[in-house]
Design a binder for these strands. Structure first.
Lengths: 195, 195, 195, 195
DNA sequence: TATGAATGAGAGTTCATTCAT
DNA sequence: CATGAATGAACTCTCATTCAT
């Protein structure tokens, strides 16, 4: 009995997803250039040829990996919307950023290194689209709600701090005083100190 | 008659410098892995083989490029020492960071991308040594002089902001409101606002 | 439909064997160092890359070639066991050595030249293991059966003669009086002369 | 004051000799292919260019090295002529062969490995000329003096033994019972046993 | 859909040789 | 006589990609 269209579709979806997840993991851990299709295929328990059945080229595969990356990052910010207080929101962003970087150092590393190279940067931008801009606007809104003087600039600095400490945690590893910084930041961005 | 020692030395220095500069440029623009010795040789108008007369391996070449990078970064901070007022010092760091990143985007890009990959990170750390730690201590001293409550944490945040905005300028390019951010930061880190 | 496991295995075996035979031939004729993978690939009518699909490195390829070599040498001595008389055995060894060297000059040449260089010697020893020692013991047993006075030393000299004349045949070629030597040796190692 | 013709000649001779000795040593230790001109020049404390001033190519250098090798081997047999008794002569050859191989394993290794490869074999034969044939004739004469039945064949076997045990000592190293073999051979080739 | 044998371009590297000085 | 910078061909090896099955 031939498989139904739906069954085929399901297999395709699962295989594709398996390849993508494996690629994400390997790209993140070893970098794009240092990860070969052979390696990905082997890790995903498929043949090299099959990978090309799903993705036209290594570059295309990477492009889709980046998409997933952004979906993953995007999820992070969903739960912020439900919070009411802008101070809570800021605290939550601080927590999420720090926790996420601690748990997903490799992903952030991949994301950042892709942005660093001219050729891969294009791909990221193509995928990212307005993602970053929207993120920034969300943060700006929070600061506007607080009625701080220069919400746009304040948001920019806040974003810089988030990325800056991510960067530092990433390459200082265990030596970075994560918790001290977390507390310090929460205090800095508390109702009392922002007026 | 053979050339004198001085003549040979001059030739060596010039060629070596030519290779190093070309490498710095290419590594920065395209990344370490994506830049081949062939490419460097072609850009530097020398033969592939000659590169190996000067550098034992691609890795060694990179190591020396990174050394240059750090000398360059180091130069940046020399003129801060001469300033007396801690506020002036902070303002100067803000200016230097922003100006330097605008002028040397590629260098920063190289530096950051090297740190992102586990294999090249080792090389950078080997060359960098305590450079980053010392830099941080210098900034901490400034904050201590201001008698701010938590100078270490404050220095960490300040450093994060510097790296964060560098990061943002780097990949937003012209869209980033550099001057607005510069003014905002100077105000934030002025005598009035730091008490 | 993908090929069956058996089909793949057959292809692999055939190609591998083709590469091995070509390598044996070329290594023997030109030496290990002077034979390039390119040359082997060209001779075997495959691409350079494919060779690396079958052998992890040139050294590994050589190792497998040496294995074949020993299998070949081993075969030579199988038929000696079936003989009863120790004199017959010695005569058979003389015949086999001379005939084998005449037919497989290249193999012996490879084997000897590999032993000559420190770096390749290690590989041969890894593959050879106790082969040579066992061979010597077999010969010693023969002499012990004859009840000769010093069977170990006698075996050593007998082995030296075999290798020595192999060496001479090898590089004197047609000028070497093979048959005279054969007859002379058989007489020397006959019942009458060994008492 | 310009150097005299004789002085120049002396310098040339010394430099040439220095290069040749260094080459002999390195070729013997590491093999011809694995020894680079750079290495030789460095070891001989001269420049690469100078080596080419004295020897047209690496191959030519090797050719002259082989010549030296033969001179060295030739010296070995000079002192045999002075001995009167043919038995003493045989014993002396046994001693010389074993002692020489123990002291100059590398040289013998070079000599043998050169003979093993078709391309270098030609060079050796060009240089060696009748050397080997003469050596054989000398040995034959000894056996003829003893009035043994088949002096030519006997000489051939004796030579084979010498080369065979050299070969075995070479690649068995310390494990080879050199002294036992020496004694055994001397006894075998003594007046009593040769009648 | 799925396989992995096969290709070929190009990577890093070495080295005999040349040549301006 | 002497130097070593410079070349270019050849080397070992890797890998994205194709394709017959």
């Amino acid at each position: 009995m031939p498989r139904t269209k739906e069954q085929f579709e399901k297999i395709r979806e699962e295989t594709k997803s398996k390849i993508l997840n494996t690629s994400l993991e390997l790209f993140a851990k070893k970098g794009y250039s240092n990860t070969s299709i052979s390696e990905i295929a082997q890790s995903a328990n498929i043949s090299k040829g099959l990978a090309y059945n799903y993705f036209k080229s290594k570059e295309m595969l990477m492009e889709e990996v980046v998409k997933i990356l952004f979906v993953e990052i995007g999820k992070m910010f969903v739960e912020i919307d439900v919070l009411k207080s802008p101070y809570d929101k800021l605290h939550r962003i601080i927590d999420l950023t720090i926790d996420w970087i601690l748990e997903n150092a490799d992903f952030w590393r991949l994301y950042a290194s892709l942005l660093m190279q001219e050729d891969t940067k294009v791909i990221v931008e193509k995928v990212a689209g307005n993602f970053m801009a929207e993120l920034f606007e969300d943060i700006e809104k929070i600061f506007r709600k607080i009625k701080i003087k220069n919400p746009a600039a304040e948001a920019r600095i806040f974003g810089s701090i988030m990325d800056g400490i991510s960067f530092h945690i990433l390459f200082m590893g265990d030596k970075y005083p994560v918790e001290k910084t977390r507390r310090f930041l929460k205090q800095k961005y508390s109702r009392e100190n922002l007026i």
